[in-house]
Write a protein that binds this DNA or RNA. Sequence first.
DNA 1: CATCTGACGACCG
DNA 2: GCGGTCGCCAGAT
Length: 107
Amino acid sequence: MSWASVYRWVKRIPRGHVVTYGELARALRLPGGARTAGRAMAACPKGVPWQRVLGAGGRILIREPYASYQRQLLTREGVEFIGHRVNIARHGWKPAPGSKSRPHRRV
DNA sequence: CATCTGACGACCG
DNA sequence: GCGGTCGCCAGAT
């Protein structure tokens, strides 16, 4: 599995918006689901807005001290935190229709 | 080659 | 809200 497509996808996330590992995995149909997305992000190269990828429910999953850093980055981008979570309803991003992600065939 | 270990998430008590 | 289980898969030891 090449993570290149994952990073390209993450790069499309606009400033001030976020997505979850689960959504990322579903959007790209990653085998293994969200965990695979997590592994991809763990090897995230520079230039990828990794901070915009959060755990389900808008939770930050990585540990301190990175968690604080991620939160700071997001806050500076204008992402609103409510307690330890991001308001997904408000900042959640859905990939623009008509982009690279090919719709899989009907059932 | 056998095991352990995660930047996961849904579910349950 | 918190902690445990399970499915899942690639790397590291």
